[in-house]
Amino acid sequence: MKVWILLAVCLAACAVAPFIGPGFSADSADFIFWQLRVPRTLMAMLVGGTLSLVGAVYQSLFANPLAAPSTVGTTAGATLGALVAIILGARLAPGGLPLITAAAFVGALGVSLVVAAIAAGRRVRMNDVVLAGIACSMAAGALATGLQFSADSAELMAATRWSLGHLPQVGYSGVLLLTPFAAVTVVGLLALTRALEVFIAGEEHAESQGVPVRRVRTVAIGLGALGVAACVAWCGPIAFVELIVPHLVRRTLGVSRRVLLPGSVVVGAAFLALCDASARVILPGRELPVGVVTAALGAPLLVSLVARSRS
């Protein structure tokens, strides 16, 4: 029952999102609505759903509520790749967004594969993998800072803008390019639900109950990296979504993996679509980066939920 109400609310939120925003004149309505707002909302749904699911899966996999693509290095790798592209690409080919996207994708995948390779080891504790992820994040972050330090002011502005997280697309090309990656990630990860349920009692216990633990965690991290790399490549590191949404779902619908994983997809899609819509109206005449909104909205929401469940 609760599940259906939440599903209806989320669908309604996604449907309403494109209508939120400053009014527009009748002659530009068609363009703004169909070429800007609808593709933006679709993009937000794809990104929000994918990031949240990956977050939920990582939390299950690492048995750690803090595990998320941003804590195991995926996001930092993407940021590094994008910065390299912004700083080199700005000199080589001005305005080359696909170049930035491709570089961010390579960066995210590169770091994630290092972490996945560590996770594939025979006798590896998941905490070590989180630690390796944090180390990779720091290394990538240090390189990125070094690059920013040597950049000129225009490049620095572009880099800052990118690293705040944004959904800047006009038209449907981004949506079309992202859809296959998001689809592979979501379908692949949801197919692991049964195995991830068994993971709750610990990896060795899961192994004794028939789960190919090493294969599951390698596939899950690989798929997660693929989806997150694609999202981050297009939209920059949108903060907190992958951390907040699974916790929201966990605290409202429960921890059962069969609810948590699909629930994270739906709630994540609606959450980011709404955040994107609010980004259009919070500052009149200006648009905030959506990453700022997710953090500003999501963090208090999470804190209040945590506080309420403690009392």
Binding site: A63, R194, A195, E197, V198, I200, A201, G202, H205, A206, S208, Q209, G210, V211, G254, V255, S256
Partner: peptide
Amino acid sequence: AWLPQRLEAAEPITALEQVVSARY
């Protein structure tokens, strides 16, 4: 099948779900 010293309970899943996972 393996019975450990103590069942790890990282998450508040139901007893039923716990037993269902043994049917994997």
